Amino acid sequence: MSIQHFRVALIPFFAAFCLPVFAHPETLVKVKDAEDQLGARVGYIELDLNSGKILESFRPEERFPMMSTFKVLLCGAVLSRVDAGQEQLGRRIHYSQNDLVEYSPVTEKHLTDGMTVRELCSAAITMSDNTAANLLLTTIGGPKELTAFLHNMGDHVTRLDRWEPELNEAIPNDERDTTMPAAMATTLRKLLTGELLTLASRQQLIDWMEADKVAGPLLRSALPAGWFIADKSGAGERGSRGIIAALGPDGKPSRIVVIYTTGSQATMDERNRQIAEIGASLIKHW
């Protein structure tokens, strides 16, 4: 067993022997301040990774656009098919120029040779490549099948209805392509620590998230040296922004954090800054 596999296998073990965790309302004060600064709703939840206990939450059962955070769930569904012998990570998928959609920095470079399922998941999570996500959605049967996968996990809230990039439209009061912070946090925890996926697939999923290259201005910008984070960000229309993450000190994750916002007129930089400040408060009061 590799060191990384050992780390993920012992996530519940280490967490069980940690000192009790206590909620700190100071972080919620910052979440509410972010709402004021952005002029928009902000949803927040913080779960203990081992027990699933909610440590703090704000608007945990209000719907927010998922945006690209759905790509972690998508690759979880792909990995479940791999575990069941219905898919192979090494299978190569070929596609054409007509398949390319807006923001496809990886797939646009491989029109000639195609990409493997493993490479597509890596591109979808680490670079948020939209064509990679659409190609992977095709392998599982489309958005409705991802929703069905989530329902089978016990998540009857999260739903995907459309493809990239239309799913980022974020129309107010439109339930399409949305989740709730509580539902997303619980589902992410199941994917990373539950028995739904094999140990190898859980490790692969967290490795992809740990290698995320496009979430630097968010929670990662607030992390002290030595902290662990595996995350996936999302951005959408109407001032929408979000991030889902597993993080913790001492090089291992111990909490799940989900943050979503929508309806702001603020710039992307300002949305990023507010999420980073929430992260800084979380870490300060850990």
Rank of each mutant, 00 (worst) to 15 (best):
H24N: 09
P25T: 12
T27I: 14
V29R: 10
V29Y: 12
V29I: 10
V31D: 00
D33S: 07
A34P: 02
L38H: 06
R41W: 05
V42Y: 15
V42M: 13
G43T: 00
I45D: 00
N50F: 09
K53G: 14
K53M: 14
I54R: 15
E56W: 05
M66G: 06
S68T: 01
T69M: 03
F70K: 02
K71S: 00
K71R: 01
K71I: 01
K71W: 00
V72P: 09
C75E: 03
G76L: 05
V78L: 10
V78R: 01
V78G: 01
R81S: 06
V82K: 11
D83R: 04
D83M: 04
A84P: 04
L89A: 13
G90R: 12
I93E: 04
H94K: 07
S96P: 11
D99L: 11
S104R: 04
E108T: 15
H110N: 06
T116S: 10
C121Q: 01
S122I: 07
I125Y: 00
M127L: 12
A132E: 02
L136Q: 00
I140P: 01
I140M: 07
G142N: 14
G142T: 09
G142S: 11
L146G: 04
G154D: 09
D155M: 02
L160A: 08
L160P: 05
W163M: 13
E166W: 12
E166A: 12
L167W: 01
I171T: 15
N173Q: 09
N173P: 10
E175Q: 10
R176C: 15
M180W: 09
M180G: 11
P181V: 13
A183S: 13
M184H: 01
T187P: 02
K190R: 15
T193N: 14
G194L: 10
L197P: 04
L197M: 14
L197A: 05
A200D: 13
S201E: 01
R202I: 15
Q203S: 06
Q203H: 05
Q204D: 09
L205F: 05
L205Q: 00
I206L: 10
W208A: 04
E210R: 12
E210M: 13
A211K: 15
K213L: 05
A215W: 00
S221V: 14
W227R: 00
F228D: 01
A230Y: 02
A230D: 01
G234A: 13
G236A: 13
G236C: 04
R238S: 10
S240G: 10
G242A: 07
I243M: 15
I244C: 12
I244L: 13
I244E: 00
A245K: 01
A245L: 04
D250H: 07
G251V: 13
V257P: 00
I259L: 11
T261L: 12
S264D: 04
R271Y: 03
R271S: 10
R273P: 02
I275A: 03
I283K: 14
I283T: 13
I283D: 02
I283R: 15
